[in-house]
Nucleic acid binder design. Structure first.
Length: 267
DNA sequence: CCCTCATGATTAC
DNA sequence: TAATCCTGAGGGG
């Protein structure tokens, strides 16, 4: 059940383990044709919002989306028996990564890749790592430029901010738990509209900072002093003020908000 | 053990 | 708006 922070964590871990190496690629379950990738060198593993791209020498990139149920298992013994239902195993001599229950796992052609990039808004975790910085700098998309684009797209959305941040073409990587916690941290009610460039910028800055904490910790972190706690997400009462948390459906997902600490109009 | 729900998103109706 | 993908966690019996 991964949002962008975990997808980036997977990408970083697998890039470290696989890039520059030839991999054994198999589909124990048989639902992915791994033959074009078996024995080839992995050039890199890249996260794009909640999407993963595997770049492999002399083969089309593999697109993976974990959806709600997808996960990776890492085995330090690459000969370990995969669980049945493993869609894809990528293994070196040192480790194996098994992909279970993905929403997507498919080769990507140029057209599909262009469509994916076009449908993917600014990612708070792009440009955060050295790897990403190099790549993004080459395209002239430094942090400030990304931030301006993020603010522009959020304001252009015209929907409730809680709907906009879940729209992956507005910002990519934010999911339902982060929506709840980021909007709390920014003092914005998910139903707020027309929040203005200043609040939009604060929300973006909060996303950049906290998703990085979450990626490094391997879980949602909305209070560095209490990394296992949340302010409003799935809570009965606000962790800050004790008010009863309001829940409702917004953009087909359960929204959580503190009626006292979050406002419909940015201050 | 069985049932429901979920940190997603597409597709069909 | 609902069904779908089809795993894991958690609650009830």
């Amino acid at each position: 059940m991964p949002e962008g922070h975990l997808v980036h964590r997977y990408a970083d871990e697998q890039h470290e383990a696989l890039a520059g190496r030839a991999v054994r690629a198999t589909s124990p379950q048989g639902r992915f044709d791994a033959r074009p990738y078996d024995g080839r060198v992995v050039e890199g593993v890249e996260a794009l919002g909640k999407h993963l791209l595997y770049w492999v020498e002399d083969a089309p990139p593999i697109h993976v989306h974990l959806g709600m149920q997808g996960l990776f298992l890492r085995y330090d013994d690459p000969a370990a028996e995969p669980r049945k239902g493993t869609r894809l195993r990528l293994a070196t001599g040192e480790a194996a990564f098994d992909l279970i229950a993905p929403a997507r796992c498919e080769p990507m052609d140029e057209r599909a890749l262009a469509a994916l990039r076009a449908a993917t808004g600014p990612d708070p975790l792009r440009g955060d790592t050295d790897r990403g910085t190099d790549r993004d700098t080459d395209r002239g998309t430094d942090r400030d430029t990304i931030r301006e684009e993020a603010v522009r797209r959020l304001l252009a959305a015209r929907t409730a901010v809680g709907a906009a941040v879940l729209d992956q073409s507005v910002w990519s990587g934010v999911g339902n738990a982060w929506r709840a916690e980021l909007l709390f941290l920014t003092g914005l009610d998910p139903g707020a509209r027309d929040i203005g460039p200043e609040a939009a910028g604060r929300l973006w800055d909060t996303a950049v900072r906290y998703l990085a904490l979450g990626r490094d910790a391997g879980q949602v972190v909305s209070d560095p002093d209490a990394p296992d706690e949340r302010w409003v997400y799935k809570r009965e009462r606000c962790r800050r003020c004790g008010a009863a948390i309001r829940t409702w459906t917004l953009a087909s997902r359960t929204a959580y908000a503190c009626p006292a600490d979050q406002r419909l109009h940015a201050i």
